[in-house]
């Protein structure tokens, strides 16, 4: 496997640290004019999502982590695994476990496309698109004509996610939701 020396460090690089795949978030080069150089590096552990700060002597190197992001369509779950399929026409399928799916579970809709991060060829994490469109399956009765009011109420979406929506939203409507904040964006006009 390839390795990266400190002068190749940059944001986005995927490396192995203490056996775990990590992504470099920030890399700061520190050097007194006449002294030893160091790199102060911020990394996110892709297994635990924890952010680490580590110092390296200039010239040290880290092994590259075999981590790649792939676009995949969500197919179905058998209760133990969530099955995804590459959208590159190969129809190759990958089973992701509950740990890999994580919080994305509440945004998973069949036939939608997600970013699946593979580590050594197996799904490590699943990232939803920034915006998803999901149907409201449960919410208190709508209050028509009350569109100007600022009040909100919880609504349950088809995937089980609960988001705060304006009072006028009714069951059966399709909503656009920002998956990063979990916030309602707008109603999607039904065609």
């Amino acid at each position: 496997m390839a390795s990266y020396s400190t002068n190749e460090f940059r944001g986005g690089l995927k490396v192995l640290l203490d056996g775990d795949p990590c992504i470099i978030l920030e890399n700061e080069f520190v050097k007194p004019g006449k002294g030893q150089a160091f790199n102060r590096v911020k990394l996110r552990n892709l297994m635990t999502n924890r952010v680490w700060e580590r110092t390296f002597k200039s010239g040290e190197s880290l092994e590259a982590a075999d981590v790649i992001d792939q676009d995949m369509e969500y197919l179905y779950t058998d209760g133990e695994f969530w099955h995804f399929m590459l959208t590159d026409g190969s129809f190759e399928q990958y089973p992701a476990d509950a740990k890999a799916v994580g919080d994305t579970l509440k945004w998973l809709k069949e036939q939608d496309v997600y970013t699946v991060t593979l580590y050594n060829g197996a799904p490590l994490s699943v990232t939803p698109p920034n915006f998803v469109e999901l149907e409201v399956v449960d919410t208190d009765p709508g209050m028509k004509g009350d569109t100007a009011q600022g009040g909100t109420k919880p609504a349950t979406l088809s995937t089980g996610a609960v988001v705060n929506v304006p009072l006028f939203i009714t069951i059966g409507e399709v909503l656009k939701v920002d998956t990063r904040s979990g916030e309602y964006v707008n109603r999607v006009k039904s065609s």
Binding site: V30, K31, P32, G35, Q36, F38, R40, T55, K57
Partner: peptide
Amino acid sequence: DLSRDGCLDLLMSF
């Protein structure tokens, strides 16, 4: 394998 001066440089820098 960090020399004495290397250690001093680290402390100086950080």
